[in-house]
Each structure stands twice: as C-alpha cells, then as structure tokens.
C-alpha cells in the first residue's frame, strides 16, 4: 500500500481549474504567454465574463469532476468592467471558501486572486505557488465523484 502511494505521489501532477475573468485575468494569462514567461502547465483556464458571474456550482462541479485545485481570478477591486462584479464575488467566494473548510476540505485547494491584464508575471507566480502548495496535498479524492 505504502509503495503504491509513493508511486502515485511521485507521478502526481496537480490539475487546476482556473476560472479567469474575461477582462483582466484572462488577458493577464495571455500576457504571460506572449511575454514567454514560464509557468507550470497544470492549470486549465476557463474564461468567464466576470468573477461575479461564477456560481458556487462551477467550483463544486470542478472539484467533483476531479480537479485538485480551483483558482478564481479576476480584476482588482475597483477595476471591474461591470463596476461591482468582483465585490459581489468577494462575498460569495468567501462563503464558498469557509464552507469548504468547514466540511474538512483542505483550504489550500481553493484560491482566489486578483490579476490585472498587465500582470502576466503575477499570473505565472500565482500558478507556480498554487501548484507547489497542491503538490504535498496529493490527489483530491474527497469531493471527486466515482465509485468508492
């Protein structure tokens, strides 16, 4: 059993689902790409109109489908294209984060960040940090659907 586990952890690459807002973080990740900034390829970006449009169901669904970590990223406070979308997101995401922690899911599996369209370097750093934090946690099996 322990041998098996050791094998799994060495091969283990965390899979991140990143919900990026269309106006800032998505452009930020683009900038990281065109600036040729190196960062891990673990994140699958999904562009959403605004962080305020993210339903908690997106996050739960990502975890259920086997994501090891979920990142929500949007415009800095005050820069939202829709004026107040990220204020609403901040409140909602706080509740989701607290609830996930409450039922005993590792707090590090879920992260939120503000990345503007000019912060390609910050985006790469956010992903790098997230991957490093996820690695010791191992695969996410708690919410993942499947026969147990």
């Amino acid at each position: 059993m322990s041998e098996q586990q050791a094998e799994v952890t060495t091969d283990y690459e965390p899979r991140i689902v990143a919900f990026l807002c269309k106006w800032c973080s998505s452009a930020g990740s683009d900038l990281a790409g065109v600036s040729r900034i190196q960062y891990p390829s673990n994140a699958t970006p999904i562009t959403v109109p605004c962080t305020g449009s993210i339903s908690p169901n997106y996050i739960l669904s990502a975890l259920k489908k086997g994501a090891d970590g979920v990142l929500v990223s949007g415009c800095h406070i005050g820069d939202c294209h829709y004026i107040e979308g990220n204020f609403l997101a901040r409140r909602k995401i706080h509740l989701v984060k607290e609830l996930l922690g409450f039922v005993g899911i590792e707090q590090d599996r879920f992260r939120m960040s503000w990345v503007s369209a000019a912060e390609g370097a910050k985006y790469s750093q956010v992903i790098k940090d997230f991957v490093e934090d996820l690695r010791p946690l191992g695969p996410q099996t708690k919410v993942k659907a499947g026969r147990s």
């Binding site: 908690p56 169901n57 739960l60 609830l99 039922v103 919410v143 659907a145 147990s148």
Partner: peptide, 21 residues
C-alpha cells in the same frame, strides 16, 4: 446537470453544499 440524482457521496455532498450556499 450540475448535480446528478444518484445518491452517492460526491453527489450528496454537492447537493447539500449547493443548498447551503
């Protein structure tokens, strides 16, 4: 279907968390 109707742990969990939120 964000949540399936089958009563498995993962689905139940997402159901209850969705409802609470």
């Amino acid at each position: 279907k964000w949540i399936e109707r089958s009563a498995t742990r993962a689905e139940n969990m997402t159901y209850h968390m969705t409802r609470v939120l």
